[in-house]
Structure formats: structure tokens, C-alpha cells
Amino acid sequence: MSTFIYSPNHGRIVFGTGTLKELPAELEKLNASQPLVLSTPEQLSQAESVSALLHGKVAGIFSETRMHTPTDVTRKACDRATTSKADYVISIGGGSTIGLGKAISIRAGLPHIAVPTTYAGSEVTPILGETENGVKTTRSDPNILPSTVIYDVDLTLTLPVYLTATSGINAMAHAVEALYAQNTNPVISLMALEGIKALAESLPVLAKNPFSKSARHSAFYGAWLCGTCLGHVGMAIHHKLCHTLGGSFDLPHAQTHTIILPHALSYNAPNIPDVMAALAKALPGSEGDAVRGLNVLLDSIKVDRSLKSLGFKEEDIDRAAELALRKPYYNPRKIEQPRIRELVRRAWAGEDARVDL
């Protein structure tokens, strides 16, 4: 076994069914009395349910969260936290809302409790992605990590089937790249494969029966493991492409990850044979081919496979490929512009991924 370093992140995890009711006790442990509750406009009712659970003892509700954590929204939310004298932040929602909570936490020095309602995984990473002037950048800092995460399976029962599928593949992408990260290690690889397997088995079930509690439980468990992987290791070309497409072209986060993942994996496949073999075992229907396994999985959960379905224009393919090459992340295979351009074109067209780039 090769030499490695594993430094686990700190943070408290409360996982189960009906666990949102533990929120008052968690706040009491943390000596918090005036949390600012965050949500998107669409999830305002969930923020209001948190306020009701706390008997209205909150600094207020900020429901103006937007995708990709624009810095102008963060500044507005920080001002609201200051004027309301908030001593804590509670985010309830998906990756966008949790991202805003992390941004406020690191900027204003306020502790953060995250209550995820999707499978994004942001709640267990010390990584913050922010967008300013059409460019999305990321940074990592242990202080970005929420102090407590409450996973309540009940909160995912009403997650629409399409968002269930795309946020689940978004989570899976974290674990796939963790398997070939520059600083991966055996512990993370075990967690990654377990998380991928849990999602690959539960997402097709949820596509047919979104109210299956056992499948919801398995998917949330997988998402937690996959997000934890991302929180410990670096990213590669998959995340670089998704950050580019999201930050510079305003494409939706989870859907973009879903479309790009099999193509990014196929790009790196020639240089990661051991990872491909392990992945194939975790993906039902792969028949020994991990790229095939991902194609089969995406077909079974009936998600959009093309960037053009998200509004991405064919004439922007060259610019996206060029932007993705700027300040490149580590990648197990050399990044070459013509091949990346073809990867983006295939994703735009909605073609099945294939290992011939």
C-alpha cells in the first residue's frame, strides 16, 4: 500500500428520519439564540417551518438565495445578518442555499447549521464556490465547513423526481473524481465506492417510486458519503468544466454535473484503469465498463443528456473549452484543447459518452 495522508474533517452529523426536530436541541448545545434562516424563494415555506419549530426565535429569514452563490447576494445577506444581530446561520435547501450559508459563515464569522433537502453534498465540504462578473472561483478553508449537518430523510420525500435524479448524479460526481484525485487515499476510495453504489442502486428505484423511504434513506446516505469525499480531496476536469459552464454560462448546477460526468470519465479512462475497474463493479448494468454503466444509469433515470436542452448554445462551445483550460485543476490525463472541445460538443449534442477522445 502506498503512503498517504488522511485528515478527517470535523463536524457533527445528525442522520435519520424526523431528525429536523432535533434542531432546537442542537442550537441549545451551541448557545445560539438568534439564527438567520436561509432559503431560496421557492423553499420559503421550509424556512418558515424552521422558524415555527424554533417558536419564532430567529433573527429573520433571508429567502433570496440564487444559483452559483453570486457575491452581490452574499453581501446583501451578510448585511442582513449584521443588522438583525444574528449569532448563527441555518441553511435549509440544496447546494445553492447551503453555499450561501457557507459564504456568510466565512465572511461574517457566524457558525452554520446546514439542513440539506437534496443530494448535492455541499454541506460536508470545506469548499466555497462563488461567482462574480461571470466567473466562478472556488476556495477551500476548514472554517467554511458547517459545524452541524442535520439529514432528515423526510425532507427529501417531496423532492421532484427530476431533481432527485440530477442532484443524485451531482453527488456521485464528487465521489467519481475523488477516486482519481491527486491526494486520494484508501479511506476516501472506500467511502466513494460505497456512496456511488448506494446512489446507483437507489436512484432508479426513486425514478419509479419517489416516495420509497428505504430508497430515499439509501440515496441520502450515498450523498453524504460522496460529499464527504469531495471535502477531503481535490477536483479535476469534471468539476472544472462544470464550474466554467455554471459560472460563465449560468447553467443549472446539478443538471450540468449530470450531463458532463460520463464524458469527463471517458476522457480520463485511458489513464485510470484501476479506477475504471472498481467503478464498473459499483455500477449495475456496466458489464465491466464504467462508462457504459453511467450511460445505462442516466438512461434509466430519464434525465436530459444535452447541454443544449439547458440553453447552452453551439456557438459557445469554443469559448467554454477555452475557459476550462484557464487555471486548470490537476487531472490524471493531460488537458488538451481539441479533445476538451470535442468533449463539450458531445455534451452539447447529448451523445452517449464513449472512450475515444
Rank of each mutant, 00 (worst) to 15 (best):
K102M: 13
I61W: 02
Q255A: 14
C242Q: 03
A52F: 15
D304P: 13
I127W: 11
P41V: 14
T258A: 13
T258R: 05
G94L: 06
L155S: 01
P142Q: 06
V296A: 04
T137F: 14
M67D: 04
L36P: 02
L157N: 06
E194L: 15
L44D: 09
K327L: 07
T137C: 14
D87F: 15
T256I: 15
A264G: 12
A32P: 02
D318F: 14
G56V: 15
P24V: 15
G94Y: 09
A86E: 01
R354N: 05
P204I: 10
T69D: 01
C242V: 07
L53I: 11
A181N: 06
E342I: 09
R107T: 00
G234W: 07
A277G: 03
L54Y: 14
I272A: 07
S51W: 14
N9S: 13
I169N: 07
L357K: 02
A103F: 11
Y6R: 02
C229H: 11
G222E: 01
S212F: 12
P35R: 03
N271W: 13
D79W: 15
P126T: 07
L193P: 09
N209E: 10
Y6T: 05
V303A: 09
I104W: 09
V176H: 04
L145S: 03
L36M: 06
T184G: 06
G18K: 03
A192P: 00
T166E: 02
Q337E: 10
F249C: 09
